[in-house]
Design a protein around this nucleic acid. Structure first.
Length: 881
RNA sequence: GGGCGCAUAGCUCAGCGGUAGAGCACUCGCCUUACAAGCGAGGGGCCGGUGGUUCGAACCCGCCUGCGCCCACCA
C-alpha cells in the first residue's frame, strides 16, 4: 500500500513521526483488550506500570531514558504475542507540586493562606491539568506505547479509594499509629519529612564547648547548635566515666538561664568523644529525646515551626541561625563559659525539595510500623520471588529494608490525600471504612494533614489495576512483569511498593503477591563528560529539543545505546547526531532495496538457490537475532543496540548491499529473484529487531517494504526458528576471505595515493585455485577493476593469501610508501611469530592448555611464518629507489 | 563511621582467563549510479600502581593510589 511513497535521499523525522502515533492509538494497538472479563485466556501476559512522573513540570532526559527502555521492553513483548499492558499515569507529587504552585502564587503576591485550603487545592488541580497535558504530549512524541484508556492519576477517585482502604486496613492491624516523636521538620515547607526526604551534606559549622555549672561542679559540653541549650534539661555522661562519677545525680546550673539541670548517666554517651559529656535537649534532638525518655526528663520546646526561638528572654523571636551566634556571644559576655570554639565539618540534613536545613522537631505525627512489612519486602527478594537487576544493587536494597525506621507518613500540607481519621470531642480517634459516613457533629473534625506522596505511589502497581476491587485487570496483570526505574528511588518507591503490595495481597499465593517479578534498575542520564545534568551546571537538555532536531528515534537510540543495567548513561549532541545518521543509513538502505525490487514477506528462498553472500548475511542475521534477543531479555539495551548498529551499518550496508549489486544487475532472473528476496528478508528482520527501540522509522520503512499495515504487531524474530536463518561458518569464512582481499587492495591503493581510475585493470592470479574463485565478479565490482587486457602493463603485484593481484598502474608505484607499509606488516608478523613461538616452546602450555587453544596457536605461528616469507619476497622484488 | 562501585584509545564506554574493541573525535584520499547525515584507508592503548594465583591475567585474589555513589543519631 505504500510502495509508491516518496523516498527522498535524506530521512526527515518531522515528515514521518507525526503520521504514526495517532494511528497506532486509534487502531488500539497499545490496548491489550477493552475492559471486559477474561478476554484472552491462556495467552502470556506482560504488564508494567509507568513510574508516574510528577505533575510538577515536564519530562526531562531521565524520563526519556526510562520511557525508552520501558517502551522497548513492551514493544518487544507485544511483537512476541504477549497480551501487553503498559499503564500510564502521573503522580500528584504532594510537596513538590505544592511548592511549585506556592511559588506561582508568590509571584502574584499571594500565599496559600490567602486563598484558603479549598481554593488553593483547586488551584493545584488547575496546575495539574496544564502540566499534565504537557507531559502527555511529550510521551506521545517519544512514542510511548502506553494504553491511554487506562491512564491513572494518584489522586483520582479509584486511587483515593485504594489509599483510604489500605490506610484503614493498616490502621486496624495496628500497623499505622499516631505518636509524638522527634521527626524531621522543614521550617520552610512547614511539614514533617520522612528520613529519606532528608539529604545530608558535609557542612561547615562550629563546635562550641560550653562550661555548665558553677563553683567546683562544672562540666564542659560541646555542641554545634548552641541555641538549643535554651531547651536543655540535663547533661549526660557515660555511667562508667570516672571523671564525672561524682556529678551523676547532682545538678548543674545552665548558663544564661540559671536553671539547674541534672547530670544523668546514659550508656549512649561516648566517653571518648569530646569531653565525654553531652547536653540533652529532648525536644530538639532525636538522641536526646531517647535519653530524655530513659530518664524521665522534661521536653522543653524552644523553637517554633519556623525555627524561631520561643524561649522567653533576650533571644525570643530570633531565627535559629541568628540565635546561634547570639547565644555564643552572650556566653562570652558572662566570661570563661565558652571553653573553646573551633570550626567543625559535620553532616547536616536538608529538605530534599527546598534545601532548607531540617530541624528535628517534637510533634504528633502518623507512622507506619514497618517492621513486619519490611521483613516481608526483604524476604521476597531473598527467596527469589522478586529479582533485582543488576544483582549488585540488591545489597543496597537489603541494607535499607532490613534496618528501616518507622515511616512518618503525615504531612502538614494541603495537596494530597487527606488522612482519613476523625477526632472526637472526647479524644476519640476514628478511621471509618471507605464509603462509611465519617463521624459528624459537635466537636468532631478530620485530621488536617495529608499523606506522604509516596504512600499513594506505593500502591501504584495494584491501585491502578482496580484494587481494592477484584477487577479483571487486577487478575490479568498483577503481579506486573517488571518494574523499570532508577536506582535513585529504590528506597522511596521500590521498597515501599514491595511492602504495600505484599501486604495488600497477603491472601494470595506468596508467589503472586509481589508487585512485580523483576526490578530493572537503570542509572542517571549524564552529559558528555559524565556530569550529572543540573540546572545550575547549565547542561540540561530538553528531550523535546532533540526530538525536534534529530527525531524521536535518534533520541531513543542514543539513550538505549548507552543503557546497561544499573549504570549511568552519558549523552551529548554529537551522539544523538550520530544516531540520526544511523537513521539516515537505514532509510537509504531501504530506499535502495525498494528501488532494487526487494521483496519481503515471502520467506526465504530455498538454501540451494542462495549465493555465498546470501548465506553469509543470513548467518550473521541469525547470530545478531540471538544476541539482540538475549540482550533485551537481560535489559542490556546497550549491547543490543551495538549489535544491531554494527550489523546494519557495517555488514548489511557496507558489504551485503554492495555484494548484492552484482547479482541484481546481472540480468540473470534466478539470481535477481533470490537476491531481492534475501535483501527484503534481511531488512525486514532487521527493522523488526530495531522497532522496539526505534518505533517510527521502522514503521515507515517496514510498511513500505512489506506492504503490511503495521510493524507494531509483527512477529518478533525468534531465535533459532525452524524456518529462520541459521549460522553458516563456511559462508562466514569465505566472505571473510573476500573482505580481506578487498581491504588489502584498497589499503595498497590508499597507501600509494592512487586516485580511482588509475588502476582499473588487474589480474587476480591464482584466484581460481581458492574458494574465492566464484567471487571474482564481486571483487572486481567492489574494487572497480576490469579484467586485464591482453598483455597489459602491470606495475604492481600484491599478494593476498593465495591470490596475487597484479595491478595496471598509470605510473610507477611509490616504492618508498610500499616499503614502509610492508615493513610495518613485517614487524607485526614477526611480533606474532615471536609471541606464538614462545608460547609453543613453553612445555607447560602444550601440556596443560586445552588442545583447541594449542592447535590455534600452532596455526597462528604457521600463518605468521608464511606472512613473513611472503612479505620478505615482496620486499625483495621491489625495485630499489 | 559503615557499605558498594569505578579506574581500558583524546572523550564516553563495552569486553571480565586464551591474537586489546566500539561510537564519537583525529589524519589522508574520494561528490563511486542507496546515503557527503556519505564512501575508502589510516594513526592512536606497558587495559591506574604493585604483589600473587595460573601454562597463560585487562579479566581471578591481596595491598596501594585516585575518583564516584549510597547509608549513618556520635554531641
Amino acid at each position: 500500500m505504500n510502495g509508491s511513497r516518496e523516498f527522498p535521499s535524506q530521512y526527515s523525522p518531522a515528515d514521518v513521526e507525526p503520521r504514526w502515533y495517532d494511528r497506532w492509538v486509534a487502531a488500539g494497538l497499545f490496548t491489550p483488550y477493552p475492559v471486559t472479563p477474561d478476554p484472552a485466556p491462556g495467552s502470556p501476559r506482560f504488564s508494567l506500570v509507568i513510574p508516574p512522573p510528577n505533575v510538577t513540570g515536564s519530562l526531562h532526559m531521565g524520563h526519556a531514558f526510562e520511557h525508552t527502555l520501558m517502551d522497548a521492553l513492551v514493544r518487544r513483548r507485544r511483537m512476541q504475542g504477549h497480551t501487553t499492558l503498559w499503564l500510564p499515569g502521573m503522580d500528584h507529587a504532594g510537596i513538590a507540586t505544592q511548592i511549585v504552585v506556592e511559588r506561582e502564587l508568590a509571584n502574584e503576591g499571594l500565599s496559600r493562606h490567602d486563598l484558603g485550603r479549598e481554593r488553593f487545592v483547586d488551584r493545584v488541580w488547575q496546575w495539574k491539568a496544564e502540566s499534565g497535558g504537557k507531559i502527555l504530549g511529550q510521551m506521545r512524541r517519544l512514542g510511548d506505547s502506553v494504553d491511554w484508556t487506562r491512564e491513572r492519576f494518584t489522586m483520582d477517585d479509584g486511587l483515593s479509594l485504594a489509599v483510604h482502604t489500605i490506610f484503614k486496613n493498616l490502621f486496624d492491624d495496628g500497623l499505622i499509629y499516631r505518636a509524638e516523636r522527634i521527626i524531621n521538620w522543614c521550617p520552610r515547607c512547614l511539614t514533617a519529612l520522612s528520613d529519606i526526604e532528608v539529604e545530608h551534606s558535609e557542612d561547615e559549622g562550629e563546635l562550641v564547648s560550653i562550661r555548665y555549672g558553677d563553683g567546683d561542679d562544672t562540666i564542659v559540653v560541646a555542641t554545634t547548635r548552641a541555641e538549643t541549650m535554651l531547651g536543655d534539661t540535663a547533661v549526660a555522661v557515660h555511667p562508667d566515666d570516672p571523671r564525672y562519677a561524682r556529678l551523676i545525680g547532682a545538678s548543674v546550673a545552665l548558663p544564661l538561664t540559671g536553671r539547674r539541670i541534672p547530670v544523668v548517666a546514659d550508656p549512649h554517651v561516648d566517653p571518648e568523644f569530646g569531653t565525654g559529656a553531652v547536653k540533652v535537649t529532648p525536644a530538639h534532638d532525636p538522641d536526646d529525646f531517647e535519653i530524655g525518655r530513659r530518664h524521665n526528663l522534661p521536653s522543653l520546646t524552644v523553637l517554633d515551626e519556623r525555627g524561631v526561638i520561643t524561649a522567653h528572654g533576650p533571644f525570643f523571636g530570633l531565627d535559629r541561625f541568628e540565635a546561634r551566634p547570639a547565644v555564643v556571644a552572650a556566653l562570652r559576655e558572662e566570661g570563661r563559659i565558652v571553653a573553646e570554639v573551633r570550626p567543625y565539618l559535620h553532616a547536616v540534613g536538608h529538605c530534599q525539595r527546598c534545601r532548607t536545613t531540617v530541624e528535628p522537631r517534637l510533634s504528633m505525627q502518623w507512622f507506619v510500623k514497618v517492621g513486619p512489612l519490611a521483613k516481608a519486602a526483604g524476604d521476597a527478594v531473598r527467596d527469589g520471588r522478586v529479582r533485582i537487576s543488576p544483582q549488585e544493587l540488591a545489597a543496597r536494597y537489603f541494607d535499607w529494608v532490613d534496618d528501616m525506621h518507622d515511616w512518618c507518613i503525615s504531612r502538614q500540607l494541603w495537596w494530597g490525600h487527606r488522612i482519613p481519621v476523625w477526632y472526637g470531642p472526647d479524644g476519640e480517634v476514628v478511621c471509618p471504612r471507605p464509603g462509611e459516613e465519617p463521624p459528624a457533629g459537635e466537636g468532631w473534625r478530620q485530621d488536617p494533614d495529608v499523606l506522604d506522596t509516596w504512600f499513594s505511589s506505593a500502591l501504584w502497581p495494584f491501585s491502578t489495576l482496580g484494587w481494592p476491587r477484584d477487577t479483571p485487570d487486577l487478575r490479568a496483570f498483577y503481579p506486573t512483569s517488571v518494574l523499570v526505574t532508577g536506582y535513585d528511588i529504590l528506597f522511596f518507591w521500590v521498597a515501599r511498593m514491595m511492602m504495600f503490595g505484599l501486604y495488600a495481597m497477603r491472601d494470595q499465593d506468596p508467589v503472586d503477591a509481589v508487585p512485580f517479578r523483576v526490578v530493572a534498575l537503570h542509572g542517571l542520564v549524564r552529559d558528555a563528560h559524565g556530569k550529572k545534568m543540573s540546572k545550575s551546571a547549565g547542561n540540561v537538555v530538553d528531550p523535546l529539543d532533540w526530538i525536534d532536531r534529530f527525531g524521536a528515534d535518534a533520541t531513543r537510540f542514543t539513550l538505549a545505546r548507552g543503557a546497561n543495567p544499573g549504570s549511568d548513561v552519558s549523552v551529548s549532541e554529537e551522539w544523538v547526531a550520530g544516531s540520526r545518521n544511523f537513521c539516515n543509513k537505514l532509510w537509504n538502505a531501504v530506499r535502495f532495496a525498494l528501488r532494487s525490487g526487494a521483496t519481503a514477506g515471502a520467506g526465504l528462498p530455498p538454501v540451494a538457490a542462495l549465493s555465498v553472500a546470501d548465506r553469509w548475511i543470513l548467518s550473521r542475521l541469525a547470530t545478531v537475532t540471538t544476541e539482540v534477543d538475549g540482550a533485551m531479555e537481560e535489559f542490556e539495551f546497550g549491547r543490543a543496540c551495538e549489535s544491531m548498529y554494527h550489523f546494519a551499518w557495517h555488514e548489511v550496508c557496507d558489504w551485503y548491499l554492495e555484494l548484492a549489486k552484482t547479482p541484481l544487475n546481472s540480468g540473470a532472473e534466478a539470481a535477481v529473484t533470490t537476491t531481492r528476496a534475501v535483501l527484503g528478508y534481511v531488512l525486514d528482520r532487521l527493522l523488526r529487531l530495531l522497532h522496539p527501540v526505534m518505533p517510527f522509522i521502522t514503521e515507515e520503512l517496514w510498511t513500505a517494504l512489506t506492504g503490511a499495515d503495521t510493524i507494531v504487531v509483527a512477529d518478533w524474530p525468534a531465535t533459532g526458528a525452524a524456518d529462520g536463518p541459521v549460522p553458516d561458518p563456511a559462508a562466514e569464512a569465505e566472505i571473510g576471505a573476500l573482505m580481506r582481499l578487498v581491504t588489502e587492495v584498497r589499503r595498497f591503493r590508499s597507501d600509494q595515493g592512487l586516485r580511482p581510475g588509475q588502476d582499473v585493470a588487474a589480474a587476480l592470479d591464482g584466484i581460481e585455485r581458492t574458494p574465492l574463485a566464484g567471487h571474482e565478479p564481486h571483487i572486481r565490482a567492489l574494487l572497480r577493476l576490469t579484467p586485464p587486457p591482453p598483455g597489459f602493463a602491470q606495475t604492481a603485484s600484491l599478494p593476498v593469501d593465495q591470490v596475487t593481484v597484479r595491478l595496471d598502474l598509470a605510473g610507477a608505484i611509490d616504492v618508498a610508501a610500499e616499503r614502509r607499509r610492508l615493513e610495518k606488516d613485517l614487524a607485526a608478523a614477526r611480533r606474532e611469530q615471536e609471541q606464538t613461538g614462545r608460547k609453543l616452546e613453553n612445555a607447560a602450555f602444550t601440556a596443560k592448555a586445552p588442545p583447541a587453544v594449542v592447535a590455534a596457536t600452532r596455526e597462528r605461528l604457521a600463518a605468521a611464518v608464511a606472512e613473513i616469507a611472503r612479505i620478505e619476497a615482496t620486499l625483495g622484488s621491489l625495485p630499489t629507489a
